Measured scan of single mutants.
Amino acid sequence: MGMPNRKYADGEVVMGRWPGSVLYYEVQVTSYDDASHLYTVKYKDGTELALKESDIRLQS
């Protein structure tokens, strides 16, 4: 078993793309699913969504 190939840690605050949009919002990573390679993130309004790594970026 190798290390999970994840870029962002639980609790890390990053920018997540809103689905169907080009806009990124501040989100907190809450979990990562090794099987689906999706991150569960929480937006400031409390919305929780699963995002692909390509829809997440570090805060500038």
Score class of each variant (00 low, 15 high):
24 Y>A: 02
34 D>N: 09
32 Y>S: 00
8 Y>H: 04
16 G>M: 10
12 E>H: 05
12 E>G: 03
48 E>M: 14
9 A>T: 08
36 S>W: 06
7 K>F: 05
40 T>F: 11
12 E>C: 08
14 V>D: 01
60 S>R: 08
41 V>L: 05
6 R>M: 02
56 I>Y: 00
46 G>F: 04
6 R>K: 05
19 P>G: 06
5 N>A: 14
25 Y>F: 13
54 S>Y: 08
11 G>H: 05
22 V>Y: 13
10 D>R: 04
2 G>P: 15
27 V>E: 00
1 M>W: 03
53 E>Q: 06
4 P>W: 07
41 V>C: 10
6 R>V: 03
16 G>I: 15
53 E>S: 05
32 Y>R: 01
21 S>W: 03
23 L>K: 11
48 E>H: 10
19 P>Q: 05
60 S>D: 13
10 D>W: 03
15 M>A: 05
32 Y>L: 01
28 Q>C: 11
19 P>M: 06
52 K>E: 11
17 R>E: 01
39 Y>P: 00
20 G>Q: 06
60 S>G: 13
10 D>H: 05
51 L>P: 00
1 M>L: 12
27 V>K: 00
27 V>L: 08
5 N>Y: 11
37 H>F: 11
25 Y>H: 09
34 D>Y: 11
42 K>S: 07
3 M>W: 12
60 S>T: 13
20 G>A: 05
51 L>D: 00
22 V>G: 13
57 R>M: 14
21 S>G: 11
42 K>W: 06
52 K>M: 11
57 R>E: 09
56 I>L: 12
60 S>H: 12
29 V>F: 00
51 L>G: 00
48 E>F: 14
54 S>G: 10
39 Y>M: 01
53 E>H: 05
43 Y>A: 13
14 V>T: 02
9 A>G: 09
15 M>C: 15
36 S>R: 11
17 R>A: 04
58 L>C: 12
53 E>K: 02
17 R>W: 03
45 D>L: 02
23 L>F: 14
34 D>H: 10
7 K>P: 03
56 I>F: 03
6 R>A: 04
9 A>I: 07
5 N>F: 10
55 D>G: 03
41 V>T: 02
20 G>P: 09
58 L>K: 15
56 I>M: 11
52 K>L: 12
51 L>S: 01
46 G>M: 03
11 G>Y: 05
56 I>N: 01
30 T>N: 07
50 A>T: 14
58 L>F: 10
35 A>D: 11
28 Q>V: 15
26 E>L: 13
49 L>R: 09
12 E>V: 08
14 V>L: 06
36 S>T: 14
24 Y>K: 01
35 A>N: 12
17 R>H: 03
17 R>K: 10
1 M>V: 15
59 Q>F: 15
55 D>M: 06
29 V>M: 01
31 S>N: 11
